[in-house]
Design a protein around this nucleic acid. Structure first.
Lengths: 336, 336
DNA sequence: CTGTTAGCGCGTTCAA
DNA sequence: TTGAACGCGCTAACAG
């Protein structure tokens, strides 16, 4: 902590015997400045350790060089294995282009459905500090929040919706596609019946995708949907009950996502139950670690880092004038 | 994306029949403004959906209301189970007080030792957008980078150093303390000998802490240090070799951190090897998931969310004039 | 209690 | 090719 005054274009100007206007042009590499003075100015700037005041620049230009990464449901998203990777890819891509990323989150996990009072950031977003925005868990946003975003001068990408939201760029999680892929795989592996396990409806819209993916299952495969009701991470009862229901039906394959998988692991009831049946997981790579000891598991993997990168690219292309579009995460098979 | 002009204090002033100065005071709740006009102005601001331009405010006041979270080694930190939780706690605490958090990372994983060229952000940090800064993996920072931070007008907290860095606030990871605690525990559990497993020295300063913690072990406990050499996540050879060396010594307990634990799991060689011996892990809660199936594991847990919160608090107290200080993460025993 | 004024540091326009 | 001057939107010091 030092109280030395910051060095400004003025300081450089005086040192170089020019005006601040010339300094500004020189530092931005404007070829209209004579090469000699340009290089002299740049040299002085380096020597004085000049750092442009980006608040001033943002005020003047109306662009901050900063993007927002916002989440609607709570800060847990920031350390969630799925979302944190998505965010990591986003931030990496931003860092590569010298863009900054500011994270907005409600201070505590919000109740469902999310009311607009829980979400300060959609309004605050037009504070001049941010040029664009990617939103985690955007399916939780209220209509009002969406309207704020639409009315702002921001470019917005919605992440992990399964439904179309007109006017926004979207990176879709593609739950339906990966369910479909998992079921196809289960059929290839010889299963005659499969169960799809979901978390409680109120916790995830993934169930929508699950159900969509179950329509028109592969020929000869009998598919049923089972839900973990009232799931609490430390309360395995509902998980065990769901497992019991599934077990009674003795499906040849079990399809679930990583959250449900973790719920099973936490409930500690998997072992010995599925002696003969193949288990088919569609899931997320962050859990690869949890699966290291679990040889029977097959899964679908998405390159989430690449997904975050995609989201970033959508915003940047938008800034260059391209129309809103929607892309899907790509999922591929892997063996656990 | 909308191109409507943003509403300013001027607009409100005109609508209210006052000047922008009064508007500014009223909106900040300055009691010097008469209650009547204050409320009238606030009402108008709400109706017009006014959002203050924070770039302008930052330019004027010299404070941005934004903190930085920076990492020195690469963006992988952002989705690492340990660091992302620390960050989550930091951001949660910030969100509670309406502070913003901007993330700075080198765009790619940097080589060791980290050269200053790899680190744009320590210089860029004095760009006027940021009031203070917490640094992940600060032991990787070069002397030049540290000097930049010291010479800036920023309040800086270094995270996960085990050594004192004068002039900085520090949140220490306390490796030595948790090694000591793990060994004490191993002795209580009846072990006569223990092995401490570390990752390659060049990858972590934790080994310093490991070695420090091994000094003056509990009475009657024989402790040896073993290192995984040349560790690559997809190359289990070095891990297996380390395991073989340990196994040959047949210690009664094995002490390691979560990274080394994951290395073991990935190498897939744990099973059957430690049939009778207790395994003592000192490790990090993010790996609780990986341990769900692993009943023999004992571990130390840190509340990392609370740790991040602590780091945030240190910066805030610094801003209020408190002298630099150093705190440790608190570790407690748990059963896996 | 409120109005006036100045200036934070930068980028940009208009003259020279 | 460069200088002079202005203004982005806000806060703060001073005057009334």
């Amino acid at each position: 902590m030092n109280s030395a005054r910051r060095v400004t274009t003025q300081d450089i100007a005086e040192a170089a015997g020019v005006t601040s206007g010339t300094v500004s042009r020189a530092l931005r590499g404007d070829p209209v400045v004579s090469r000699a003075t340009r290089e002299r100015i740049q040299e002085i700037a380096r020597r004085l350790n000049y750092q442009p005041n980006l608040s001033a620049r943002a005020l003047r230009t109306g662009r901050s060089g900063t993007l927002a990464l916002a989440c609607s449901t709570g800060p847990w998203v920031l350390h969630h294995p799925y979302f944190s990777r998505l965010g990591s890819g986003f931030m990496t891509a931003a860092a590569e282009e010298g863009q900054r990323v500011t994270v907005y989150t409600p201070p505590a996990a919000t109740a469902f459905p999310v009311s607009v009072e829980d979400q300060e950031w959609p309004r605050e977003m037009s504070n001049g500090l941010v040029d664009g925005c990617a939103v985690y868990q955007s399916h939780r946003l209220s209509q009002e929040s969406l309207r704020f975003l639409l009315d702002s001068r921001l470019y917005v990408v919605l992440l992990n919706t399964d439904v179309d939201v007109p006017g926004f760029f979207q990176l879709r999680s593609g739950s339906d596609e990966r369910i479909r892929e998992s079921l196809r795989w289960a059929a290839e592996l010889g299963a005659r019946s499969a169960a799809v396990l979901g978390l409680p409806e109120r916790m995830t819209t993934v169930n929508q995708g699950l159900r969509a993916g179950m329509e028109a299952p592969p020929r000869g495969l009998d598919v049923r949907f089972e839900e973990i009701r009232h799931y609490e991470p430390d309360e395995p009862k509902a998980v065990v009950e769901a497992l019991d229901r599934i077990h009674a039906a003795r499906p040849g394959a079990l399809v679930l996502n990583s959250d449900a998988h973790l719920a099973l692991l936490r409930a500690g009831r998997r072992e010995g139950r599925w002696s003969r049946e193949p288990a088919v997981f569609h899931h997320r790579p962050a859990d690869a670690e949890a699966n290291v000891l679990d040889r029977e598991v097959h899964y679908l993997v998405a390159d989430l880092l690449e997904g975050g990168r995609k989201a970033y690219g959508m915003i940047r292309r938008a800034q260059k004038g391209e129309p809103a579009s929607s892309e899907s995460l790509q999922w591929k098979r892997a063996e656990g």
